[in-house]
Amino acid sequence: MDLAVVVVIQILYAVASLALISIGLAIIFGMMGVINFAHGEFLMMGGYAFILSYNAGVNFWIAMLVVAPVTIAVIGVVVERLIIRHLYGRVIETVLATWGLSLFLIGLAATVLGYHQKGVNPPFGTIRIGAYQEGGYTFFVIFVTLALMAALYVGFKYTRWGLIARGTMQNAQMASGIGVNVDRVYATTFGIGAALSGLAGAILAPIAGVLPEIGVTYVVKAFITVIGGGAVALAGTGAASSLFGAVSQAVTFLSRPVVGEVALLVVAIVLLRLLPLGITGRYFRRGL
């Protein structure tokens, strides 16, 4: 019984962390049709922003929940102005340009901060479940992810800004025709996506640590989750990360972590063969 509870918690955690690392990328892809391959480095920089400001004496929660997302949002807006803006409508070119950016940022981080791994201890200690122990921080990650998804849903569905953003996504020309500043909507959306990536990087930093190259481990999973989910950002990420996270965590339990990673990739390959436009290409098409 205790084991079953632990297994369920672990699977929930796998799903939540997958959704957390993917959501920033998903919003940018779903809203703007742009694949940001430097996404992993946004997470990496979020992690650094958090750890460096925490070490400099900023309060733990402010460093994580405010400093990291705001810093990365600013960087995101700059990247949008300098690079992404010139490549709208050309998915492959944006992938390539941001891939170059990702190399650049890895090199920059390595030069400035060095190759040593930085980390902080996760708060909350451990919680006993019968004969097992579970880190309290695990629950925090699951909770934050749920809260974030809910906030995004409300933001896009019920606010004036969300309405404008969705309208621009559906038909940018029409939106522009009725007086929406499309450029600004794109820049803001990209900034929000970047902020979410920075936040995700900061939240995962106590667990995974931060290294200049850590983005590489995030970006492929996020990329696969987002493409597997399809163009509808929230529903797609939710569905794809539930599927991939559950499968990979379940397989990890039955054998070992590597086989879990491989299972995730194999499921993604088969999924894209069956649903070439991702899950939301067929289901939840009217979702958000």
Partner: peptide, 14 residues
């Protein structure tokens, strides 16, 4: 750093 140079070239070319 190799990554900085190659990354910058990559972006510039695209």
């Amino acid at each position: 750093d190799v990554n900085i140079v190659l990354g910058a070239i990559f972006v510039a070319i695209v």
